[in-house]
């Protein structure tokens, strides 16, 4: 017993030092990419391609660490000190939060790279069960009685915010821009949501694995991925008449990258996203490349053409959209006010 206690004390102390050492050993040529949920498969492939490219150009080996989660959660982790060299999040609003709450990246981060720092885009579509038993064709069908809609919580999920805004844009157009009626329509939509997961992946699992709901409002790339993972004979993709141009942005977290001596590799990493190889991989993983010329035409052919609204033109940018819809007490919260 005596031995046990002494040894475990020594072990504990040693392990504590070891772990501090391990944390500092991060300062090697490892790059941390903090990303959102549906990009896992894409970055897995892209990281390998980039590491090979960097090795060929500089002779240096680089390892890319990945962290995935809800976009808002990931932004908060970076604000709280997660040592991300680059962030690749679901929406500009989350990177704006990092810029406003820390001095780790400049306020004009979005102007550092082409296309508002969004190397690929996506949109929002519907995923329904095979044969579309509830005959869902467009957003209007989602508020019908008896239709169960799966979408994550816009408070915690970036994808859910795009879902919400796409729905809002459709309703506003249909209802002639009447805000009160649009609000009511949105409230009807969320009344049809039986499970509000915290992230896009959670919702997909609820819909595809648990068999809940008739329609999943989903990232386009996520919908394709579900067909790939769960079999195309189980689900159909329905493209609504109108959707939103989702621009998931990327940025170097300069404060962290500089401190870790990673600025060069972090910048090269993001630039590589815009390279023909990066663009090709994006298209392969169901993201719409900003430079379609370098993508495989077969991959491009999968993307349907549809009318897309834009966050900047139609909603006045993320700062405004956040304040109008998702801030504490804003329109989304009003949906979930007790009605008594």
């Amino acid at each position: 017993m005596r031995l046990l206690t002494r040894r475990s004390l020594a072990l504990g102390t040693a392990a504590l030092f070891l772990s501090v050492g391990a944390a500092q050993a991060l300062a090697d040529r490892t790059l941390l990419n903090v990303s959102y949920d549906p990009t896992r498969e894409f970055y897995k492939e892209f990281n390998a391609a980039f590491a090979a490219d960097w090795k060929a150009k500089t002779g240096e080996a680089v390892t890319i660490e990945q962290s995935h989660g809800g976009s808002g959660k990931q932004a908060r982790a970076v604000i709280d000190g997660l040592q991300a060299d680059v962030v690749t999040l679901a929406l500009a609003g989350d990177i704006d939060q990092i810029a406003s709450k820390t001095d780790k990246l400049p306020k004009d981060w979005a102007s550092k790279l082409p296309h508002n720092s969004a190397p690929y885009t996506s949109t929002i579509v519907f995923l329904v069960r095979k044969g579309n038993p509830k005959a869902i064709k467009d957003w209007g069908d989602l508020v019908k009685e008896g239709v169960q809609v799966i979408t994550p919580n816009p408070k915690t999920s970036g994808g859910a915010r795009w879902n919400y805004l796409a729905a809002w844009a459709y309703a506003a157009k249909q209802l002639g821009g009447d805000e009160a009626k649009t609000k009511e329509w949105i409230a009807d939509l969320y009344r049809n949501v039986p499970v509000l997961d915290t992230g896009a992946r959670g919702s997909t699992t609820t819909f595809a694995q648990r068999g809940i709901g008739d329609v999943l409002i989903s990232w386009e790339n996520e919908a394709f991925l579900v067909q790939k993972e769960f079999g195309a004979d189980n689900f159909d993709i329905v493209v609504p008449s109108l959707s939103i141009l989702a621009e998931p942005p990327v940025a170097v977290v300069e404060g962290n990258a500089k401190a870790k001596g990673n600025l060069d590799v972090a910048e090269a990493y993001l630039k590589f996203l815009y390279s023909p190889e990066g663009q090709k991989l994006a298209a392969k993983n169901f993201f719409r490349p900003v430079d379609p010329a370098s993508a495989d035409p077969a991959d491009l052919a999968r993307f349907p053409k549809l009318e897309l609204v834009s966050i900047d033109k139609d909603f006045g940018g993320w700062a405004k959209a956040q304040k109008d819809f998702f801030a504490d007490g804003a329109i989304f919260d009003q949906i979930y006010r007790p009605t008594n």
Partner: peptide
């Protein structure tokens, strides 16, 4: 306590000590 926005955060950052999002925080 230890987050970059937390009470000891600025001191930890200044001394390059990572507690949360690393093994010590998990422990």
């Amino acid at each position: 306590l230890f987050g970059a926005q937390g009470w000891l955060g600025p001191w930890l950052v200044a001394h390059d000590i990572q507690i949360i999002f690393a093994v010590p925080g998990i422990v």
